[in-house]
Design a protein around this nucleic acid. Structure first.
Lengths: 235, 235
DNA sequence: CAGCATCTTTGCGCTGGCTCAAATCTCGGG
DNA sequence: CCCGAGATTTGAGCCAGCGCAAAGATGCTG
């Protein structure tokens, strides 16, 4: 990412790692010759959320923290990468931008390669040909939910869950958009990590405000815009 | 899954769907001839968490709810699948068992194919050859965290986060296992969706109980077993 | 080795959301 | 058309954990 390969990277860097251990010396050589090594200090950022995902990384030493920052500035740590693992493999998921920020939790040493070399890597693990735009998208959505659970209050989580269902399965009906399948308070609570009681109270309040209208097992959103606002605002 | 292909599945089932719309009629025919169709009623289970993942599915109509059940019997809805989407694609992730349970949120109609046909599907989306054991594993871990955030109290989440870090980066030191990188209370709070104050109080209490010992930016787990117990128990 | 930035601990009051409990409503089935 | 199971609403009390505030501890820097 910063400078060209050092004099020459030592093959012993990769030899002990699982994916590479079975390879011929010459193959390892070829891979290393394409790699760029980089050392970063504790706290330094390796790549930023939203930046073009032009490289993927292999962590040789140290620990990487993968974080996301919410609209209100809170940090949520999505996962930690221990030495020996790949990270920043957004290219593999059909994404052209990194979905999160990676920073060094300790001083770290890593190799990286341009995204276009990914397919060559993929074969190493002995896996099959697969399509993963779907998977990448789903992974992103799940990640969003972690952030949501970590930073939002119950009311906002329920509002967002409802908004998501409207987008996925909503049908236009008179007076709003109806969720396209039977949905109980209990169901909504299981989607948002709360209780059916709380969901019931929320829906009642929203109904009073003209945002939703519901009958047994059915929810219609009458004011989608205000629902979305509920999901984002603080307070 | 239940019965052999009907008389003959109609090509118009697939024609309107994005991945298939570009295919020749003969190709669609070939795909359909391998498919099994199935109709399930509201509330019925399509496959159970932990069952051998021998098939993958395409939802033609209705909505599927993907849920996980915790050790204490609570249900957490991981995601909803709208009509037109694939689901149960565990085979694609290198998994041989379904990681969650799929049940019909409404009466649903679906097609399914044996797992071994997955590669043929994969090519449709126009994606590249990729390896995804890594991705599949990571997706599973993230999913676990959603369940955790939804069902566990703060103390349990922090205990689990610590246990995870010990497994990933722990080094044996005298008197226990030390997390292998600098870790502040703030860091732990960002991993678990709580505040540094609460984390501090928890660590103090645990230190008093001889479960952990910590100095500035470093945490050593002195009694891993009890830590794990803390992460699972209720109360 | 003194100063300072950062990290950690601790107290206190408040409240969102859970638990427990019970009444009421809705709809499909007989 | 009546009954019962499941769904929904609503009340009351309680407490885990947050927000706010401030003091202490630790380790790096010059």
């Amino acid at each position: 990412m910063t400078r060209p390969p050092l004099n020459r990277l030592d093959e012993s860097l990769l030899t002990p790692l699982p994916p590479f251990s079975r390879l011929e010396r010459s193959e390892i050589r070829a891979i290393l010759d394409q790699a760029v090594s980089r050392r970063v200090e504790e706290g330094a950022t390796v790549f930023h959320e939203g930046a073009p995902a032009d490289r993927f990384f292999l962590l040789l030493d140290g620990t990487i923290r993968v974080i996301r920052v919410t609209a209100t500035g809170e940090h949520v740590t999505a996962l930690h990468i221990p030495a020996g693992q790949l990270f920043g493999i957004a290219p593999a998921l059909g994404k052209d931008h990194y979905p999160a920020t990676a920073q060094a939790a300790s001083e770290a040493l890593m190799l990286s390669w341009p995204a276009r070399l990914w397919p060559r890597f993929a074969a190493l693990d002995g896996f099959t040909t697969e399509t993963y735009a779907t998977v990448g998208k789903r992974l992103g959505e799940i990640n969003d939910r972690i952030v949501e659970m970590a930073t939002l209050a119950v009311e906002q989580r329920v509002a967002n869950a409802l908004a998501r269902l409207v987008n996925q399965t909503g049908r236009k009906v008179e007076g709003g958009i109806e969720i396209g399948f039977p949905l109980t308070r209990q169901d909504l609570s299981e989607m948002t990590g709360t209780t059916l009681h709380t969901v019931s109270r929320l829906l009642s309040a929203w109904e009073k405000d003209g945002i939703v209208s519901s009958r047994r097992k059915h929810v219609t959103v009458t004011d989608p815009h205000r629902l979305v606002v509920l999901g984002q605002r603080r307070g």
